Amino acid sequence: MTGKLAGKVAIVTGSSRGIGRAIAQRLGKDGANVVVTYHSSQNKAQEVVEEIKAEGSEAIALQVDVKEINSVGNLFKQTLEHFGKLDILVNNAAGKNIFKPTAQMTEEEYNSMFDITRGVYFALQEAAKHLADNGRIVSISTSGTVMAIPGGGAYSGCKSAIEQFSACLAKELGERGITVNTVSPGVTDTDGLVLDEEQVNQLIAQTPLNRLGKPEDVANAVATLVSDDAHWITGQSIRANGGIV
């Protein structure tokens, strides 16, 4: 297989649909061998695997619950057993995005989002242990971390933590040539979009490029950051959001 990522091995968590699927497909198209992970959508994950193989790269699907630390560790173990190395980690897996006024947020709802954030931290820990020198780490955040959306405190808070995990890890791994960044989408047209039509239209009106984002828009940003072209970019949060902020 040829391409910018030929010979590389990548894990993309939560890649059976939406943004994760677009990222996995793009990395496969660029030549990487891809570990597609899913929580419950095995059939959809296998579809992604077949699409990647059709482009000439290798791919496997692994079930992972990022809320469970042992499951995260097993993902890295299985990847190394199958491919023998790991060059790229993309932390994309997410649960339900809950927007509620602070006074109304339940403990269960709060925990459901921060449990994912905890999983991202320990995925970063595994990557710090096992990623090859000159590797790439990208975690998906949100432009909501700088927009202060009413009802978005818990959601934006859990994503802000991921940005801080990444910025600190970038300084820890820099001497090994490993870059660590986040990509922050804006409003993106996926089945996880929880805003109503009026809210979506308001956000489109605030976006200079005047449309919703597409999963491929985010995948393009990730593909750039994991390539050799971006070897001098680390510790950054790149906003792939059409200019809304």
Rank of each mutant, 00 (worst) to 15 (best):
G7M: 06
S16K: 04
G20I: 03
I23F: 10
D30K: 13
N33G: 03
H39M: 11
S40F: 03
N43I: 13
N43G: 05
Q46V: 08
V49C: 01
V49Y: 00
E50C: 01
K53D: 00
E58R: 04
A59G: 00
A61K: 00
L62F: 06
G73F: 02
Q78G: 00
K85F: 01
D87L: 04
I98K: 09
Q104H: 14
E107S: 14
Y110P: 08
S112K: 07
S112M: 06
M113T: 08
R118S: 07
V120F: 03
A123L: 04
E126D: 09
A128D: 03
L131W: 13
D133K: 15
N134T: 10
G135W: 13
I140A: 05
T142D: 07
G144L: 02
A148H: 11
I149D: 08
P150K: 01
G152Q: 02
A154D: 05
Y155I: 01
G157N: 01
C158F: 02
A161K: 05
F165N: 07
S166V: 14
L169G: 06
A170N: 10
K171I: 04
E172L: 10
G174Q: 01
G177V: 03
T179M: 07
V180E: 10
V183S: 13
G192H: 03
L193N: 14
E198F: 10
V200E: 08
N201D: 15
L203G: 00
L203H: 04
Q206G: 03
Q206F: 11
P208I: 06
N210E: 12
K214H: 13
D217S: 05
D217A: 05
V222E: 01
A223N: 15
V226E: 09
D228R: 09
W232C: 09
W232I: 09
Q236N: 10
I244S: 09
V245S: 07
V245D: 09
